[in-house]
């Protein structure tokens, strides 16, 4: 490490001479060792400082992701030392795998049920928080509170609340004269319950991000609209939403990338705890849960890698679609 050595050298005394700062000393053609070290320090230190991120990302982020593609071409079992190359057979199997389609539909369904209401409620909540409140920080902290819950704790608590027999939600439904719902057994009901969990944890967090963007909108824009007689709804649609567009794109993209990899919530929601099935007939198994089950319960690492790669492509496609959609919806298309 050049910077470490030069740090020790520099302690001996002030150098004050390095190429970028015009010093009182005229540049002589003959550089001293100290000058040269200082020059190297300026030149190479930045690369040394950013290196840890790039090295670590390469080793534990990018390389494993690419190597997943390689593993997916093998019949690769966890405990078996020999790996047989089978080309695209894992993918051929995957595209004929009913369970994979079930998990894909589940993932998309849970994703839609969680992201769409979440973003709408987050914008409305941000609008409420953007009024002239007493103790604004207190309200903001309160809204963010669910964010501290770990996904595991959350999954356990909500599995209890949505329990089929003694769950509080069913108790409440009965109290108001509705039928109880078997939240774990019914496919659609289980998706709703899992979406409620996700929304509960993330809505406040996203509302704060939207609120920050709202507060960055200049006040005089609203005043001008008020003078023109624009209603509150009109102001929201014609001023706030278009100006929030970059932020909404950010929120939608992060919730897309995270939401399509949902794992912990469905795993903990199972009425057979510890199971990776996502319900008795996989009714709420997500793709990532299926990936985990295939790789680490059934120990078919090759097939699980194929699932990972296909999910990766699905995420890219949906992220691009959502990007275009948000850009169009949250704005009339005028240049900013």
């Amino acid at each position: 490490m050049s910077s470490g050595r030069s740090a020790r050298l520099a302690e001996r005394g002030p150098t004050g001479r390095y190429p970028e700062v015009p010093g009182p000393v005229p540049q002589t053609p003959k550089l001293t060792l100290r000058d040269r070290i200082s020059g190297w320090d300026v030149k190479f230190s930045p690369y040394v400082y950013i290196a840890p991120f790039f090295i670590l990302f390469g080793l534990v982020g990018l390389f494993p992701l690419l190597y997943t593609g390689y593993v997916s071409l093998f019949d690769w079992d966890l405990l078996d030392e020999t790996h047989k190359f089978i080309g695209f057979n894992n993918y051929i199997d995957l595209f004929q795998d009913d369970q994979f389609y079930t998990t894909l539909v589940n993932t998309l369904s849970i994703f839609l049920l969680s992201s769409v209401p979440q973003i709408i409620i987050a914008v409305l909540l941000a609008a409420l928080l953007n009024t002239n409140l007493r103790a604004p920080t207190g309200w903001r902290i309160g809204v963010l509170l669910p964010y501290v819950a770990s996904l595991v704790a959350l999954g356990i608590i909500f599995a209890n609340l949505f329990g089929p027999n003694y769950g509080l939600v069913n108790g409440f439904l009965e109290l108001v004269g509705l039928d109880r719902i078997d939240w774990q057994a019914s496919r659609f009901a289980s998706h709703i319950a899992i979406a409620v969990m996700i929304n509960w944890r993330w809505t406040g967090y996203n509302a704060l991000i939207v609120l920050a963007a709202m507060q960055a909108i200049p006040k005089d824009v609203y005043e001008a609209a008020l003078i023109d007689g624009a209603s509150a709804f009109r102001r929201l649609v014609s001023i706030t939403l278009p100006l929030l567009r970059p932020t909404l794109i950010f929120v939608v993209m992060t919730s897309t990338i995270g939401g399509l990899q949902v794992f912990t919530e469905p795993k903990l929601f199972d009425s057979m705890p510890g199971s990776n099935n996502g319900g008795s007939s996989n009714q709420f198994q997500t793709v990532t849960l299926y990936l985990y089950q295939t790789g680490f319960e059934s120990q078919h690492l090759g097939y699980a890698s194929a699932i990972a790669w296909v999910l990766f492509l699905v995420i890219i496609v949906i992220a691009v679609i959502n990007f275009l959609l948000t850009r169009r919806l949250a704005g009339t298309g005028e240049k900013k």
């Binding site: 790039f54 990302f57 534990v60 390389f63 494993p64 992701l65 993209m253 890698s305 990972a308 999910l311």
Partner: peptide
């Protein structure tokens, strides 16, 4: 390089757990 750092935010590195586990 900084743009690259931002781009990595969108990479679902969680999907690389299988090779990472093998390693």
């Amino acid at each position: 390089l900084f743009l690259f750092v931002i781009a990595t935010l969108a990479v679902p590195t969680q999907l690389g757990i299988i090779p990472l586990y093998i390693a």
